[in-house]
Simulated assay, not measured.
Amino acid sequence: AEEVLGNNLEAIDFYTKQGNGESTIYVVEFAGSQMDGSWYVTVCYCFGDNYMAEFIGVNPYSAADCREITIGSARSFRELGKAGQREGVKAQGMGQENWPYPYLHNPFAIVAYYMDAEAPHFPSLERSASDYEIKWKDKGIETIVRALLEKDSGPVMSSDLDRYESFYVVGWLGDFYRIGMGDRMMEIPSDGLTIRTLEDLQEFANLVSLTFEVRDFTDVSPLSGLKKLKYLNLMVSPKLSNLDFLNGMPQLEELMMWGESYPEIKDISVFQGMDSLRSVMIILPGIKDISVFAGLPNLETLWINCHKNVDAAPVIAAGQIKNLMINTEEIR
């Protein structure tokens, strides 16, 4: 650990935890600093007659989270009942000559790699057990995801996307798209990039934030499968005819549809019962009745441009709406 981290080694600890039944989990835990931040590493080992299992957690934010997830994964391990096979090449250097299990990682040797890379979130145990290669429905979305993953070829697995809670696509900027996943943001040429369906976004099992701004796009129905979504910033074709895709978003807190007008939408009853909504900004010139918003208990912000003969009395009377603007007139 000192050879890899030097003076940046902050702490190191060795201890055991109770596993399943009478099994013991052997734990190595340490922390290192870099660029005014800390990285936390937890490594767990389980040993049996026919197996040796290793679990490595790396987290740039919380030692407690790293410890909980890694030890939890180790505790979930079940022996498969098959003879263990020792495969791979013995590593050299970094103290490996003194490491008694040569086919496992030396936990200290991985630090230099992870210190300069994004720390991956571990997929859920259920997701790991059913991991599969994504069969892309849309070439444009595949191109964007591969660019952000820096993976030009080879399979993209379902668990590769588990670490990402946000997805960002802005395609009206001219000759480039601005795209992002998690903390990673970049620009790619728009030439030859066409998005025809959003079905692939359902592969993001933990998506809570989505920005999608592509003005010639019309079919957003696949978004109804994003059940964990809390923030949606949507700007698509003015030919959009309904808001039915919101039916599948029970946790949605913020809806931003302020960049484009949607005159063909005539029914907004979909908002009824969306009690998690805190903010709605939307342009619906064909809507006269906006009383549905008055019944949303957590709605604090409503900006709406709608029909000039709108009956605004119900939402004006709604005390929970603290920031209200109707047809560019700020009410309060």
Score class of each variant (00 low, 15 high):
residue 89 V to H: 11
residue 100 P to W: 00
residue 80 L to G: 14
residue 120 P to E: 12
residue 78 R to P: 07
residue 45 Y to I: 02
residue 83 A to F: 10
residue 50 N to S: 12
residue 55 F to Q: 08
residue 45 Y to W: 10
residue 48 G to P: 13
residue 116 D to F: 04
residue 80 L to F: 10
residue 105 H to Q: 05
residue 53 A to P: 03
residue 65 D to A: 10
residue 123 P to F: 14
residue 76 S to K: 13
residue 91 A to R: 04
residue 47 F to V: 06
residue 59 N to G: 14
residue 120 P to H: 13
residue 101 Y to L: 03
residue 69 I to N: 07
residue 74 A to D: 06
residue 89 V to W: 12
residue 98 N to S: 11
residue 47 F to W: 09
residue 67 R to G: 03
residue 114 Y to M: 06
residue 50 N to F: 09
residue 65 D to S: 09
residue 79 E to C: 12
residue 68 E to N: 15
residue 120 P to D: 13
residue 66 C to L: 05
residue 83 A to C: 08
residue 55 F to G: 07
residue 60 P to D: 08
residue 118 E to K: 11
residue 87 E to V: 10
residue 123 P to S: 15
residue 62 S to C: 10
residue 103 Y to C: 01
residue 79 E to H: 14
residue 83 A to N: 09
residue 106 N to A: 05
residue 95 G to W: 05
residue 102 P to A: 12
residue 87 E to P: 01
residue 66 C to N: 08
residue 94 M to A: 07
residue 104 L to C: 03
residue 47 F to N: 06
residue 111 V to S: 04
residue 102 P to G: 07
residue 63 A to D: 00
residue 84 G to F: 08
residue 57 G to H: 05
residue 59 N to T: 14
residue 48 G to D: 05
residue 94 M to Y: 11
residue 47 F to Y: 13
residue 48 G to C: 10
residue 96 Q to V: 01
residue 121 H to C: 11
residue 79 E to D: 15
residue 67 R to L: 05
residue 97 E to R: 11
residue 81 G to R: 08
residue 63 A to Y: 00
residue 51 Y to A: 08
residue 61 Y to G: 06
residue 114 Y to K: 02
residue 84 G to D: 02
residue 64 A to C: 10
residue 68 E to V: 15
residue 52 M to V: 14
residue 104 L to V: 00
residue 74 A to I: 03
residue 50 N to A: 08
residue 115 M to K: 07
residue 90 K to Y: 08
residue 68 E to L: 14
residue 117 A to H: 12
residue 63 A to I: 01
residue 117 A to R: 05
residue 78 R to M: 14
residue 98 N to Q: 11
residue 112 A to M: 04
residue 91 A to F: 05
residue 116 D to K: 01
residue 113 Y to R: 02
residue 96 Q to K: 03
residue 109 A to R: 00
residue 80 L to N: 14
residue 78 R to G: 11
residue 98 N to H: 10
residue 115 M to Y: 01
residue 91 A to T: 05
residue 122 F to A: 15
residue 68 E to S: 15
residue 76 S to E: 15
residue 101 Y to S: 03
residue 71 I to P: 00
residue 115 M to T: 03
residue 104 L to I: 02
residue 61 Y to W: 12
residue 78 R to N: 14
residue 55 F to K: 05
residue 92 Q to M: 09
residue 122 F to Q: 14
residue 120 P to M: 13
residue 112 A to T: 02
residue 79 E to F: 13
